[in-house]
Simulated scan of single mutants.
Amino acid sequence: MWQAIWRYRKQTLGAAALMIVAKLAGVSVPLVLRSIVRDVQKGTDSIGYLLCGVQMGRNDEKSGHVHESECPS
Results as ranks from 00 to 15, higher is better:
42 K>A: 10
33 L>N: 15
26 G>Q: 00
29 V>I: 05
50 L>Y: 15
33 L>K: 08
33 L>H: 13
26 G>S: 05
43 G>S: 03
40 V>L: 08
52 C>F: 05
39 D>T: 07
34 R>E: 07
27 V>F: 04
58 R>W: 07
37 V>S: 09
60 D>Q: 11
53 G>K: 12
33 L>F: 10
23 K>C: 02
53 G>A: 14
55 Q>D: 05
35 S>Y: 09
23 K>D: 02
52 C>P: 14
58 R>I: 08
46 S>E: 05
34 R>A: 11
60 D>Y: 06
46 S>H: 04
57 G>P: 09
29 V>Q: 01
50 L>C: 00
23 K>R: 07
41 Q>K: 15
30 P>W: 02
42 K>C: 06
28 S>K: 03
22 A>D: 00
41 Q>C: 10
44 T>R: 12
22 A>S: 08
29 V>K: 01
56 M>W: 02
44 T>P: 13
53 G>D: 12
46 S>C: 06
57 G>T: 04
55 Q>N: 07
39 D>F: 09
20 I>W: 03
65 H>I: 06
60 D>G: 09
49 Y>K: 13
31 L>R: 14
20 I>C: 00
27 V>E: 14
34 R>V: 10
68 E>K: 12
39 D>I: 06
42 K>H: 07
47 I>P: 03
24 L>H: 03
60 D>L: 09
56 M>S: 01
56 M>V: 05
41 Q>A: 12
64 G>P: 06
25 A>N: 04
42 K>L: 08
45 D>N: 15
37 V>M: 10
38 R>A: 11
44 T>V: 12
34 R>F: 06
59 N>L: 10
63 S>L: 13
34 R>H: 11
28 S>A: 06
44 T>H: 11
22 A>Q: 01
44 T>G: 15
46 S>K: 07
42 K>P: 00
49 Y>L: 09
55 Q>L: 05
62 K>V: 14
